[in-house]
Design a protein around this nucleic acid. Structure first.
Length: 479
RNA sequence: GUCCCCAUCGUCUAGUCCGGUCCAGGACAGCGGCUUUUCACGCCGUUAACGCGGGUUCGAAUCCCGCUGGGGACGCCA
């Protein structure tokens, strides 16, 4: 078989949703796995909702995730343009061809007319079915100058089936199909038509998308048939639901503090690899393995081990997976970790040099799960004076701590080297850390908890350590 | 309502295709403990699932049927 061609076709009507990111990921993995082509196509035919901001946000999000496309906006390709509103002529031409061949027809029924019928059906609790008002008319019946839509002449009997890569064979009866609209009265195509025309002309060989699209597939299969092209293979992915089993809409997700846009994950300090590793296990698995490098994912990915059951999003697990990815050098090299953490540290007003930052980060890497947590955990290294936690101050910086801190200061003052080992050698035999630890920790970090104090002092350096001890001593004596 | 799809711990899942190795394994969360100057990390332990009912079979989480439950869709949205 030739190299497969897959696509991700978002509509720029909002940010890139994590469900969309998962779809993009599966397509991308499939393309990379088989040396295929990953096409990005923008389905911007909903002019009322499409925005330039959202278009940009989606591209940015995909880039942030590292899901690079081989053909599409801003990179071009031989099958462009890759934005549907720039392909209107093609749809019109294709629709005319179908009309000529008697496979589609002009329908002059107005929206108002149909809305009334739809309402009536609803009132009678019956499924609305488009009465074949214009199905059998010919060009002689067309009113001149009146607006019309182009409808597909759907088969009245029989059934349509396709073999889904993850669900197997799916068959639906044709008598359920409406004469669905191909082209709106303004000449803009509707989803099913636009997608099929584009998939045909862009030579897409496999369509992977959310399970909510299986109902569209029979119509699309029929369209391929009418157009005279073989249908591509289809792979539908189970849905990602909110913890309560409802659709993971923005509103629903907010109730559970689940961000739905990829940009929100970026802003919360997630690693793209961490997010992707969580998403990839949603509907796909490789035995019990939970964390994968990008390379492993590409080598392992296959629709045959995809699952069919919908799943519920679990933020705690998502964070846990991110933690694993971020703290492990195998997934996130130290330099990449430092670079990724930097913006979050800078957002707090700090501008440490790389060496200082890196050493500070080394002390918190095990414990912080996101870059946002990392930045918080490392804040006192760069803030002068460190933010002092009230509760910690009240408990630790008391008069009784004065002699302990004084002793620590004396020992430190005579030390030259502040490496953790040197500190250990000089202090551990002289001090009872159970006593000194709590006040010293608050003095040095302003908090009740922190990494080991030897490491903290080492990163802080002698001058800062002594200054902070002095400041704490003053508070303790006064308290 | 109609059509389509799905069904293993609270959650993501392994096992289901090729019935026995599964009194169902892993991970996250929970709980208990160890470690520790604190908080984490780590380690050890533990709670917890084959939706229900019928078949088929010597034997079913695995195959068949029904039920129940859940989801998707029914637009001049995508």
């Amino acid at each position: 078989m030739n190299a497969p061609r897959v696509r991700f076709a978002p509509s720029p009507t909002g940010y890139l949703h994590i469900g969309g990111a998962r779809t993009a990921l599966f397509n991308w993995l499939y393309a990379r796995r088989h040396g295929g082509v990953f096409v990005l196509r923008v389905e911007d035919t909903d002019q009322a909702r499409s925005t330039q901001e959202s278009y940009q946000a989606i591209l940015d999000s995909l880039r942030w995730l590292g899901l690079d496309w081989d053909e599409g906006p801003e990179v071009g390709g031989p099958h462009g343009p890759y934005t549907q509103m720039e392909r209107l002529a093609l749809y019109a031409q294709t629709a005319d061809r179908l009309i000529d061949e008697g496979k589609a027809y002009r329908c002059y029924a107005t929206k108002e007319e149909l809305d009334a019928l739809r309402k009536e059906a609803e009132r009678q609790k019956k499924q609305f079915f488009y009465p074949h008002l214009w199905r059998d008319k010919t060009s002689k019946d067309w009113p001149t100058g009146a607006p019309y839509v182009v409808r597909f002449k759907a088969p009245l009997a029989g059934e349509t089936s396709f073999d889904d890569e993850v669900f197997g064979r799916i068959t639906t009866p044709n008598d359920h199909l409406q004469d669905f609209v191909l082209l709106r009265s303004d000449g803009v195509p509707l989803y099913n038509f636009g997608a099929v025309v584009d998939d045909v002309t862009m030579k897409i060989t496999l369509v992977a998308r959310g399970r909510d699209h299986v109902v569209n597939t029979p119509q699309q299969v029929l369209l391929y048939e009418a157009l005279g092209y073989p249908a591509p293979r289809f792979a539908h992915l189970p849905m990602m639901l909110a913890p309560d089993g409802k659709k993971l809409s923005k509103r629903e997700a907010e109730r559970y503090d689940i961000p739905v846009s990829v940009t929100a994950y970026r802003d919360r300090g997630f690693s793209p690899d961490g997010l992707l590793d969580y998403l990839v296990r949603f509907g796909w698995s490789h035995g019990d393995q939970e964390t994968f490098t990008r390379r492993e994912l590409i080598d392992l990915f296959d629709f045959s081990t995809a699952s069919r059951a919908d799943g519920k999003f679990d933020m705690k697990k998502c964070v846990a997976i991110n933690h694993k990815i971020v703290k492990d050098d195998r997934f996130t090299p130290r330099a990449a970790y430092v670079a990724a953490a930097r913006p979050f540290v800078e957002a707090r007003g700090h501008r440490p040099d790389t060496e200082h930052l890196a050493r500070a980060l080394d002390t918190v890497r095990e414990r912080a799960r996101t870059y946002a947590e990392v930045a918080d955990a490392v804040d006192y290294y760069f803030r002068e004076p460190p933010a002092l936690d009230d509760e910690a101050k009240k408990r630790a910086l008391v008069p009784a701590a004065v002699p302990l801190l004084t002793r620590l200061r004396e020992l430190l003052a005579g030390l030259e080297r502040f490496e953790p080992d040197a500190l250990r050698a000089a202090l551990d035999a002289e001090l009872d850390w159970k006593q000194v630890g709590p006040p010293a920790r608050v003095a040095l970090t302003g908090r009740a908890s922190s990494p080991g104090l030897h490491e903290v002092m080492s990163v802080l350096g002698k001058t800062t350590v002594l200054a902070r001890l002095d400041a704490a001593l003053a508070i303790a004596a006064a308290g």
